[in-house]
């Protein structure tokens, strides 16, 4: 099971988090964007910045490999997003710009893109990475719904381009072929994901995704395609 809100809350004990991020004395908080971030440079200032894109799995950072699954998750107001994390070195981890772009290798069109300011936490070996218990530190790529003439987003390969820029302009980027997946355990949630992320979406199409046959769809098709 990949990153979800219940999981996110369970990753690190409350006491450790309270020690790391305390509201009572915000001026002492480390890892914040802007003037209050006091994290040290990671890696070597003389080295080229490096970036590894990843996702959170069971509380740990897992690199997105070629052909790896990129989960589609449900945020509060609707739709489905993918959370893309970054591990980086040879840069300033405070207030970096993290950008993730999902592009179709078939059409060349960008399906979805998001950029946000995040602060990385110092990790082992001279690297820094997103705080894995906080999805606001991931790029939240707004994947679905996408609108015609779009392609199906789920179960088809896409190119994921990730770029990170620190406050001094040091830049690193990486590209992976990934496959967006609906990995929800509840049938309704998985059917809703498949419905919203399949081609030809229109508002209202997914009012009852289980009755719409979306759960049975495989390989990025529509219920009609499955019937064919």
């Amino acid at each position: 099971m990949l990153l979800g809100r219940p999981f996110a809350r369970s990753l690190v004990s409350a006491s450790v988090l309270a020690a790391l991020v305390g509201c009572s004395s915000p001026e002492a908080v480390e890892g914040r964007v802007g003037a209050t971030c006091k994290l040290a440079f990671v890696g070597s200032d003389a080295g080229s910045p490096e970036l590894v894109p990843g996702v959170a799995v069971d509380g740990g950072f897992v690199e997105l490999g070629e052909g790896g699954a990129l989960p589609l998750a449900t945020p509060p107001q609707g739709g489905h997003v993918s959370f893309v994390a970054a591990r980086a070195t040879n840069l300033d981890p405070c207030g970096v710009k993290l950008k993730a772009t999902v592009r179709s290798p078939r059409t060349g069109f960008i399906a979805a893109e998001e950029e946000r300011t995040v602060t990385l936490s110092v990790a082992d070996g001279g690297w820094a990475e997103a705080e894995l218990d906080d999805i606001s530190n991931f790029a939240n790529v707004p994947m679905c719904p996408d609108y015609p003439p779009n392609e199906t987003l789920v179960d088809l390969p896409y190119d994921l381009e990730v770029r990170i820029v620190d406050r001094a302009g040091r830049t690193a980027h990486a590209t992976r072929s990934i496959v967006p997946r609906c990995e929800q355990t509840e049938p309704y949630d998985r059917a809703l994901c498949r419905c919203e992320c399949s081609e030809g979406y229109a508002l209202g199409r997914c009012a009852d995704p289980l009755d719409g046959g979306w759960l049975e769809v495989v390989d990025g098709g529509s219920p009609d395609a499955a019937a064919d």
């Binding site: 991020v21 509201c23 915000p26 001026e27 908080v29 914040r32 964007v33 802007g34 003037a35 209050t36 971030c37 207030g95 710009k97 960008i110 979805a112 893109e113 998001e114 950029e115 946000r116 300011t117 939240n140 707004p142």
Partner: peptide
């Protein structure tokens, strides 16, 4: 969070 300065979110 408190202390954040010009924290920016951009989507398409």
């Amino acid at each position: 969070c408190p202390g954040d300065v010009d924290k920016t979110f951009t989507a398409t």
